[in-house]
Design a protein around this nucleic acid. Structure first.
Lengths: 216, 216
DNA sequence: GTCTATACCCTGATAGAC
DNA sequence: GTCTATCAGGGTATAGAC
């Protein structure tokens, strides 16, 4: 971990790759608050203009229309906020500890941010009407995490991971669906499962392959 | 498997638990087509009335308002369509074969139905505005499947499953997130992973605990 | 119970003053 | 570039005839 400031005071993004003017960022910040809460169809341009503190026409002068604003927003949020999450994590140390660290990074740095839940919800919700945004999300967020863990498995054959890619899907898939069921669908009320308990079993399962290898 | 007819010609439901009149079912069928495709905010009552072939007022006489219609629809679809999926499946036979059967039941009977994808998408999308529907979904659909597999693990201690509940979360979580990423978010284009490959590894991982037990 | 017609509000998008 | 004012269209919900 570098000594980068932990404060995420500016809601979600601070270092934004897409070049945006100060006014555009002001609009996008307001648009984010509305779109993430109300969804695409549930968002009105009036509401966005009020939330951003600008007039409607100002929005239309910077972005073609509602669709254009939405696409620009999603690119902005997705690219800017997740480009650093699993960036240059030091992938070394005891495998069991390392896997827990990766998982806990996902939990604390991603899943615990309400904006992430809202973003995931929105991407899923609009995945039919805006498939290109779903694709952007998978490439920018999901694939990034997968490649990192998958490469780690490949570079450490002593772990005996039979299929790094598939194992990665199982690992992150369990984490994502856990967050989805527990946090988004309120499963914590009727079928709760503590994160630690999931992690204990998940790490054990993945590293069980190691033991079998050693017994050969 | 009983000799129940496989034909699901009536879109999603045929035997419906909630008592509905013929007219109400006509309305719900139309509402389903619109809501599942356009989402809640994207659905207009005009569109529903046109799709159902009734007047708008007829809808308002049977259901309080748009919200009431939506809730009634979701209960109808959720309860009616999933009450039989994992019903009295014969949970016996070779564990590796059995686990694959459960997974393939999920894939072919659930995930391959476009309506299921749309329903899951809609539940996720509206999980903030309609948390009670998300809860209904988890209780009716997710919990049902979980209890079945979890009980199987409990009743077969020779498998050496350390934590049946957590293992079940990992098992179904991997399946659900796979469907979500591959089918809904178009991950099959940029990060494809065949179902068989996922299943091979998933079953191996879960049953690896069995081998370790035998070695004791 | 069901349909036609309509009231009333808010939406996305535009035109013109500054 | 930015704002105020406005348009045309479609939204939810209701009223009254059959």
């Amino acid at each position: 971990m570098t000594k980068a400031p932990i404060s995420q005071s500016q809601t979600l993004c601070d270092s934004c790759l897409p070049a945006v003017t100060q006014k555009q960022e002001q609009i996008l910040q307001g648009a984010m608050r509305v779109f993430l809460k109300a969804g695409y169809a549930g968002t009105s341009m009036d509401r966005v203009s009020a939330e951003a503190g600008v007039s409607k026409q100002t929005i239309y002068s910077h972005f073609q229309d509602k669709k254009g604003l939405f696409k620009a927003l999603m690119e902005w949020v997705t690219i800017a906020s997740f480009s650093r999450f699993f960036d240059v994590e030091q992938l070394q140390g005891e495998p069991a500890v390392l896997l827990r660290q990766v998982a806990e990074t996902y939990f604390t740095k991603v899943a615990d941010h309400p904006d992430y839940i809202a973003l995931l919800r929105l991407v899923v919700a609009e995945s039919e009407h805006f498939p290109e945004l779903a694709k952007l999300y998978t490439q920018t967020v999901i694939q990034r995490g997968h490649q990192l863990l998958s490469q780690y498995f490949v570079c450490h054959p002593e772990l005996g991971i039979a299929d790094p890619e598939a194992t990665t899907h199982i690992f992150f898939g369990s984490l994502v669906s856990h967050v989805m069921v527990q946090e988004m669908l309120n499963g914590n009320e009727t079928m709760p499962l503590a994160r630690d308990r999931l992690l204990d079993n998940l790490v054990n399962l993945v590293l069980a392959q190691t033991k079998n290898v050693r017994l050969h």
